[in-house]
Design a binder for these strands. Structure first.
Lengths: 338, 338
DNA sequence: ATGAAAGCGCTAACAA
DNA sequence: TTGTTAGCGCTTTCAT
């Protein structure tokens, strides 16, 4: 009740401030956006007036008039996934430095399709858009291109990005990690992918390329798909050991499942890496703490967010971009599990 | 280059669509927002025209005219922290169901202070705001109250929320967890808090209350503060065992440090819970996988986000709220570590 | 350094 | 069911 009555007081506008300060509205606008263009005396009066009436600028009106929203949109498959947290963090860090704000869309199990979702966010007239690993329909691409916003795609390196792409190469990473364990002498290497076909196929491709490069044969019984949870990882390694005892190494697509697998090996007293080696396609602090610590691929997630933000900022300031695809690479960190 | 030339084509407006369809602009507006209010024939022509010119509504203009942004803002201390992911997830799930969108602000190490940050986001004229455990200056509160937006505070249950508060009681949780281990017979119970004083003090308070309730004395050597990382947890338990060998149980404020501690015990072959029991103030899948699995406090983070979203949605639809403080509670899940 | 006029693209309120 | 008229609160452009 109290709130509602207070709220009914119409919020102060530029005009209210101007009237109180005895200047034209445009002068107040200038005092706020380019203080140096307004004389000190007038500025002081305006600042006073602003405090007095509790003026908070209406950015909606400002955006409409200036045709500039300072809004960046990130479309993410699943906000609940901690993986995205670092990228979003890097992104907001850069955006906030430049007075831009971030709106987040969860493409996950959204009822409305990708096109509708993109259209809905485009309706906000953002200055830039980060798209994490979404495949686009022809119409969605059209929509994005016609909109004129800076589009940065992340999640995988694209040869034909709509505008630009910042990521690492999933193919190269998978190949490198597979070569890494092949070179260590492992041969019956299981590959555990996620149910996400898009991502998994690229990685499987890299996995096969590594075998091919060394002229070795792949054991098809060792290609598995399962969700990225530690429970699933635990089950998977159990199954592998029982059903395909020839296995001597497992590559996990997700870190949670890899950690689950290591812990399951502890429970079963299966020696890692002696009986079976384990490596994973992502890294975090915990991967270093388990016993044995996990050999992992380190992906520069925070940096990807920052770089994506930087590209958007550069685009807005008219700075010509250098390349369309920015490869931020990856590192293989060998620890005890291989 | 290509992009820039294409982008220079002025985007289609409602007027363009109206002209092409041979109707008044307002009719197009209606056809989009309330299709049932427009005759089928006219609607068809309008839909055609929209497709033809590739019209994407300008929500900035719409918001200004209708005085409704459909924007909700969440201010979070640290987006990089996976803990917040679930809450944000729950929040977006509800918001998207009601056509609202989320903008995220990172209060963390922001250069601009809380007041400025709140003012900056208020300038976007959001319909609602979620504030995660931020203490507010008098002026910040004023700003929020005067704005008339629905404010939901999370992170701790508040007696005097600005508008409403959704959370669990940190005090009750800490007391309950402490009582839990006291009742199991542990007596020299270390409490490992985070460096965040605000949160840690409330929990320490609960910890003391539990001892007091049973008329037991606290060992002051067992109150520790450290960052929530698994590395820190590993170190901490090592130190505790060496410097204060009387310790028989450790309560960890953060889950990462608790997991680090369990893993450290494995490395040192310290028997958990025989030599030392471990419990933690948060739960996740991994906590169930480590050896032994961790006794944990389960906090309904996703649900907190959903509920916060629901409150905002209700507020917007004028539904009177039931209570100002919603306590979503917690559960203690006993596993092998105690 | 300051101001006047015009309008951004849409929707509310009120007709017809 | 459809249209007319007036803004929403600000910034742009062009004076002064």
């Amino acid at each position: 009740m109290k709130r509602i009555m207070q709220g009914s007081r119409r919020p102060a506008t530029l005009i209210d401030v101007a009237a109180l300060a005895g200047v034209a509205p445009i002068t107040v606008s200038r005092a706020i956006r380019m203080p140096e263009k307004v004389s000190v005396a007038v500025r002081r009066r305006i600042v006073h007036a602003i405090e007095k009436v509790g003026y908070v600028p209406n950015q909606v009106a400002g955006s409409l008039a200036s045709n500039r929203t300072n809004l960046v949109v990130a479309l993410i498959p699943n906000i609940g996934n901690p993986l995205f947290a670092s990228t979003i963090h890097g992104l907001t860090d850069v955006l906030h430095e430049h007075g831009l704000h971030l709106a987040i869309g969860n493409t996950g199990h959204s009822l409305i399709g990708e096109e509708a979702l993109i259209a809905a966010f485009l309706a906000k007239r953002p200055c830039g858009m980060l798209l994490h690993r979404t495949t686009h329909s022809r119409r969605a691409r059209r929509l994005l291109i016609d909109s004129g916003v800076a589009v940065v795609e992340t999640g995988n390196l694209l040869r034909q990005p709509i505008d630009s792409s910042v990521s690492y190469s999933s193919f190269a990473a998978a190949k490198a990690l597979t070569l890494h364990v092949l070179e260590l002498g492992y041969r019956r290497i299981a590959f555990v992918g996620s149910p996400n076909p898009e991502r998994t196929e690229v990685r499987q491709h890299g996995y096969r390329a590594a075998f091919k490069e060394l002229g070795l044969a792949i054991d098809p019984a060792l290609m598995i798909k399962l969700p990225h949870t530690s429970g699933a990882g635990a089950e998977a390694i159990g199954d592998l050991l029982e059903r395909t005892p020839q296995v001597d190494c497992v590559l996990f697509s997700g870190i949670a499942s890899a950690i689950g697998a290591v812990l399951e090996c502890q429970r079963r007293s299966v020696a890692v890496p002696k009986r079976i080696a384990i490596a994973t396609f992502d890294d975090n602090e915990l991967a270093q703490q388990v016993l044995p610590p996990l050999t992992a691929l380190r992906i520069p997630r925070y940096e990807i967010g920052r770089r994506a933000g930087q590209i958007i900022v550069d685009w807005l300031s008219g700075t010509p971009r250098e390349g369309r695809s920015v490869d931020l690479g990856f590192k293989i960190i060998r620890r005890g599990s291989t």
